[in-house]
Design a protein around this nucleic acid. Structure first.
Length: 424
RNA sequence: GGAGGUGUCGCCUAGCCCGGUUUAUGGCGCCCGCCUGCUAAGCGGGUUGAGGGUAAUCCCCUCUCGCGGGUUCAAAUCCCGCCACCUCCGCCA
């Protein structure tokens, strides 16, 4: 992210960075002014406090009239110290408030523009031509109903719209995907984790989900808990306020957790089936490393995701998300979009973000290096998002007879099962 | 949810009742040195961490005894609230 030094030395660069992200350039000036007040308040407090300490020592050893004299002096000083302390606390809080609104610095390589200005980096695999195969492809809702993979009606009855039950083979399919994703993650050096899905505000705020994304987050006011929208949150907060041993980096974790999303503002979008839901389970990859190493790690995350879809025999493309569509914390983001036949387009199934030191600064995660203590970098990437992967598998691997073929790589995790069909 | 106990510088620990000379005691570990055929042992010294100032590994300042408030000229120490852990009870998968 833009650190304070850069902000102070070249505010115009920072303003430009804000414009590039579609964020307010004026924020930079607000921060600078808050920073100035904060520093002045700290300096004033520290000076008074130092004086007070010196006097305190003399009071301790003084006797009689000397002591009375010193006590009078220090009493006056104490009043000043107290007000200086209040001023400092206020100034720091004000500074934090504006500073926390500043998004990460977008990578210079990220394409300019907003949501529609992504750049397609590559296509892997070919969408099937169902017409040529002589049958009309069904959408995942139809397939899922017929094969009893999920139960949307009862999901709605019990929990409302955008909820579902995974049933029978559907439930087994998710468990198989979890196992396979964890297996591949472990092979790549990630430590399997099952983190808490309810977190305190600090974790949510530190990962950058209480900014522009706040409307999408479930909150339990009685207990002051947030429901995580991804295990990125508890995995990032795992090492909060810690100083990591540089030799231990990179630290890699694969978290499996439910994900809860309000999907506010998406009314009417993707209402069919289980493509866009309020809850799904996901295996997420998370890395702590150095900022210098983060770029290479980002490439590796994308490569692991590509390998995953190749193993699942799903046609996909990789996009480079534009600066204006990066959210608060990412400096750069690559999405893998899988072909969804019934929709006739590529849809996001995984996303890999390099958050550089943005989350680490906010969560107090630093590394001890030979040249000192510095914030580390954090990265996250989807290993497997269950509901959407099930959608993709059903639609892409459907057969003329209404059955669905299980990709070879996934079969061992389903007890050797090769197809989903009405019989079983 | 209820009762009691605990939380100190990497780890263990003293200090808290009775507030000030605590720049927090001692041990372990770690680092440097001495000594010794080698090793072990022994001896001497060093060692909380973070933030900031500075050209600076010198030096200076602030913060740091679970967290946050309060009392006081002054808080590890007194008071209040919270959190975590332990023991017991209750409840529960």
């Amino acid at each position: 992210m833009i650190d304070l030094r850069t902000l102070r030395e070249s505010p115009e660069l920072a303003r430009e960075a804000q414009r590039r992200r579609g964020a307010s350039p004026e924020l930079v000036d607000e921060i600078l002014s808050a920073d100035e007040s904060r520093r002045a308040a700290i300096a004033a407090y520290e000076q008074l406090r130092s004086k007070q300490k010196g006097l305190g020592k003399r009071v301790a050893s003084a006797r009689g009239a000397d002591k009375e004299q010193l006590l009078n002096e220090t009493r006056d000083l104490a009043v000043q110290v107290r007000s200086a302390e209040t001023a400092q606390t206020t100034a720091e809080a004000d500074f934090e408030t504006v500073m926390r609104q500043l998004p990460n610095l977008a990578s210079p390589q990220a394409p300019a523009g907003g949501e529609d200005d992504f750049v397609v980096l590559e296509h892997v695999g070919e969408p099937r031509d169902f017409g040529a195969e002589g049958f009309q492809a069904l959408d995942h809702l139809e397939l899922g109903k017929r094969l009893r993979v999920f139960d949307i009606e009862r999901g709605a009855k019990v929990s409302g719209a955008r909820f579902y039950y995974l049933t029978g083979v559907g439930a087994l399919l998710e468990l198989a995907l979890v196992q396979m994703a964890m297996d591949r993650a472990q092979a790549a050096g990630f430590l399997p984790m099952i983190p808490p899905a309810l977190v305190k505000p600090r974790a949510m705020e530190g990962t950058g989900f209480l900014g522009q994304a706040a409307a999408d987050v479930y909150y339990l006011p009685d207990d002051d808990f947030y429901l995580v929208g991804t295990s990125e949150v508890p995995l990032a907060a795992y090492h909060s306020d810690e100083i990591l041993d540089a030799d231990a980096l990179p630290l890699r974790y694969a978290g499996f957790s439910p994900c809860f999303r309000k999907e506010a503002g998406s009314y009417g979008k993707d209402t069919r089936g289980i493509f866009r839901v309020h809850w799904f389970d996901k295996v997420e990859l998370f890395t702590y490393t150095t900022v210098e190493e983060s770029y290479a790690e980002h490439e590796r995350l994308v490569q692991w995701e590509k390998d995953w879809f190749t193993e699942l025999e799903l046609p996909f493309r990789v996009i480079d998300v534009a600066a204006g569509d990066l959210g608060l914390s990412a400096a750069r983001k690559f999405d893998c979009e899988v072909w969804i036949p019934a929709q006739g387009r590529y849809r996001e199934l995984t996303s890999a973000s390099n958050c550089t030191d943005f989350q680490a600064r906010r969560l107090g995660i630093r590394g001890r290096f030979s040249d000192g203590v510095r914030p580390v970098a954090t990265l996250n990437g989807t290993a497997c998002s269950m509901a959407r992967t099930i959608v993709a598998l059903l639609e892409n691997h459907q057969q003329a007879d209404g059955s669905v073929q299980i990709p070879t790589a996934l079969q061992p995790f389903l007890g050797g099962r090769k197809t989903l069909d009405l019989a079983g």
